[in-house]
């Protein structure tokens, strides 16, 4: 049985710890998924369920705020304009004045999706909805989501560089000296790896810490960890979006010879 069962994906924590009273308030399930069969493909249902909630919330906010755009903003439009401004500043600072317009929606979507996912995972009481298998949580706590996002970023910066500079894009690999070639090639692999694992690790760790604390001491004690989690979640969304924008900016950057 050993290769198929691991510490991380086996039974709830309550069975692993020899606690005298097994509290029914919180249980930990790690690495268990609600599988949906799609043809002969398997997908993680809980990730999609929570991501649809996230996307639905985002779309509801956006639709509510843009139904009647006015020159003197009112209500939700203020929030949306603040977000737009924030994302534009982020994109413009990292990508540069010339190319940021093309990538603003991508960077903005990354930021908003990750941010709302992270906070949704921390703030929505998912435990109230019990699934037959696995549990709902932040979509970004699943490695599939973060790798998908990171690979999109990789595609985006390759596309950005190639579409803007053509094959001159590969000059970037020999700058400032050709010695850099192997490092730059390795970078193309480490960039998505670090992006996805940073986000995944942070969000999963946050959820685990909160869950473990809530399991051990259900009252008050998890609150600081939860607040820290909210902070980390916001920071991770910002880091992911900033790095994505930075990579794209690096790809479209014109070096002056």
């Amino acid at each position: 049985m050993f290769p198929t069962r691991r510490l991380s994906d086996t039974a709830p924590l309550s069975q692993m710890l020899p606690l005298p009273l097994a509290l029914p308030l919180a249980e930990l399930e790690v690495g268990q998924h609600l599988y949906w069969q799609l043809g002969n493909l398997k997908i993680h249902g809980q990730v999609f369920l929570s991501s649809w909630v996230v996307i639905g919330a985002l779309l509801a906010l956006v639709i509510a705020g843009t139904r009647k755009l006015e020159r003197d903003p009112r209500g939700v439009q203020n929030l949306l304009e603040f977000l737009w401004d924030y994302i534009r500043d982020l994109a413009r600072e990292q990508i540069g004045e010339k190319a940021y317009r093309d990538w603003l929606p991508f960077i903005g979507t990354l930021f908003l999706f990750i941010f709302v996912s992270n906070w949704g995972g921390a703030l929505v009481p998912w435990k109230l909805i019990s699934l037959p298998h696995g549990e709902l949580g932040a979509p970004t706590a699943d490695i599939n989501t973060t790798i998908a996002l990171a690979l999109l970023v990789s595609l985006a910066y390759f596309y950005a560089g190639l579409s803007r500079k053509g094959f001159r894009y590969f000059e970037y690999y020999v700058e400032p000296t050709p010695i850099m070639v192997p490092f730059k090639i390795v970078e193309d692999f480490t960039k998505p790896l670090s992006l996805s694992f940073r986000l995944f690790g942070n969000i999963l760790a946050d959820e685990l810490v909160v869950a473990v604390l809530a399991f051990l001491v259900p009252l008050v004690v998890p609150l600081p960890a939860m607040l820290l989690g909210l902070f980390t979640s916001a920071i991770q969304a910002l880091i992911f979006a900033t790095l994505a924008a930075y990579y794209i900016g690096e790809a479209v950057h014109e070096s002056h010879h």
């Binding site: 994906d9 799609l38 493909l41 956006v62 929606p105 979507t109 998908a148 999109l152 999963l204």
Partner: peptide
């Protein structure tokens, strides 16, 4: 199962995010 269980969730999520980008671009 497991933490690192990669499957069709990955490409589908990528497609979903691309679609979300298009929708948010048009709506927001």
């Amino acid at each position: 199962g497991g933490l690192f269980d990669l499957d069709a969730t990955l490409p589908l999520m990528a497609v979903q995010v691309v679609l979300l980008t298009l929708i948010l671009n048009a709506l927001f």
